[in-house]
Design a protein around this nucleic acid. Structure first.
Lengths: 218, 218
DNA sequence: AAAGCCATGTAAGCTGTTACATGATTTT
DNA sequence: AAAATCATGTAACAGCTTACATGGCTTT
């Protein structure tokens, strides 16, 4: 603790931002340790995580090849979100058992509590979050959906404001050719904005129709 | 035809797939050479392309740093879509003038004629295509929008079929806990599918409202 | 005897970002 | 004298994908 090039106080240089795949691993470790809470083992090993990823419905949402899986586990260990212990086995390769640290549990919980900011992150990030929220804490899942709806609704509002402003300052018809050029430029920008509005609106409708909002599933 | 690891006939090993940024460069070279068709110069240089990218509305759709721009120009030259000639200047750095080859023109035209396959490619690929189609060949832009609408409509139909089949084979209520597990798994898959349907539908509506479809812009 | 599972990785390659290097020349 | 323009790049790094390496064991 006393020496060296790395400051002894700041153990973690920067808290590195994790991607959805890494959070999914944290979540899967949590799920696994809940599943065999009465068992004797303390953690899960990579191969088991790979199996859980491939068989469950998670595989339809996020793909994770073994190469990346082991890479991420090492990284999570390096940044202190996971602890690893080697377990020797007879007539089988050694296993590396991974378990969440307190930091790891906190990181997982914080991630689950945080809605995503951009529409494009709904497809991967938010769906993975929702999967784990339903699995680990269904009550929390309801709040997550509500908060995500708020974020997307605000985003949609801001896009619609921009769109409205666009109609406002539209060309006062000056010189012919320069105005036509400018109009063509404005056209594609307006179309781009319209596309974003359409997609964001679709996501908002989808969020509103989710079972967490109290509909009966019939 | 008879020998060797690389056939001497097939000059191009594999036709490498180009990304939207690379096609945008091909398109910009075409636009530039159309703009100064009466000029004496045969091609465009990278710096000029960078300027055109940063000032026009294209910059709002696709971003391309100088580093990548020069990298792509070299690549396009390597695969024979572009020819490069050095032009010496007095009291200025040498320029490298780039012009489309016949292959380059064909590649650009083929790309402009081809709608994108996936919904997620609409946001970047299709918008860039549309920009160049409007710029280079507005008549062609109308056909492009129509074909893109067809592709997305078929995709939406297939997603809706899957969704309908999902309701069909829903659990005949066997053993309690296993069925609940399966139901939870099915739930997230259904939600994922619903999201894709919502987003695809939004893109289809947007395509239908595009000015190429003959609406008056008011 | 062959195939496949268990368990962990390495290696190579592509795509892309960010920041900086160069060196003369024109503008402020 | 300082700053910006012209014109072309390199270096470092980061993330992801694909394919393969290892080696003992169990099942067919």
């Amino acid at each position: 603790m006393s020496r060296g090039t790395l400051s002894p106080v700041a153990e973690k240089r920067r808290p590195p931002r994790l991607g959805p795949a890494e959070y999914a691993l944290l979540g899967l470790i949590a799920v696994a340790s809940r599943d065999d809470a009465m068992g004797d083992r303390s953690g899960v090993h990579g191969y088991d995580l790979a199996r859980r990823l491939q068989t469950g419905s998670l595989a339809e949402i996020i793909r994770l090849e073994p190469g990346m899986l082991y890479h991420y586990l090492k990284k999570l260990d390096r940044v202190g979100l996971v602890v690893t212990s080697v377990e020797h086995q007879v007539s089988r390769p050694d296993r590396q058992d991974h378990a969440l640290t307190a930091d790891g549990e906190a990181a997982l919980r914080a991630w689950l509590d945080e809605p995503v900011r951009a529409t494009r992150d709904v497809r991967l990030d938010f769906l993975v979050k929702l999967w784990f929220a339903r699995e680990l804490d269904p009550v929390r899942a309801v709040a997550l959906v509500r908060e995500q709806r708020g974020v997307i609704a605000r985003l949609l509002g801001s896009l619609q404001e921009q769109r409205a402003a666009m109609d406002g300052d539209d060309a006062p018809a000056s010189a012919a050719q320069a105005a036509a050029q400018a109009a063509a430029q404005a056209a594609i920008l307006r179309d781009t904005l319209d596309l974003r509005i359409a997609q964001t609106g679709a996501v908002l409708s989808w969020l509103s129709a989710l079972p967490e909002n109290g509909q009966t599933v019939s």
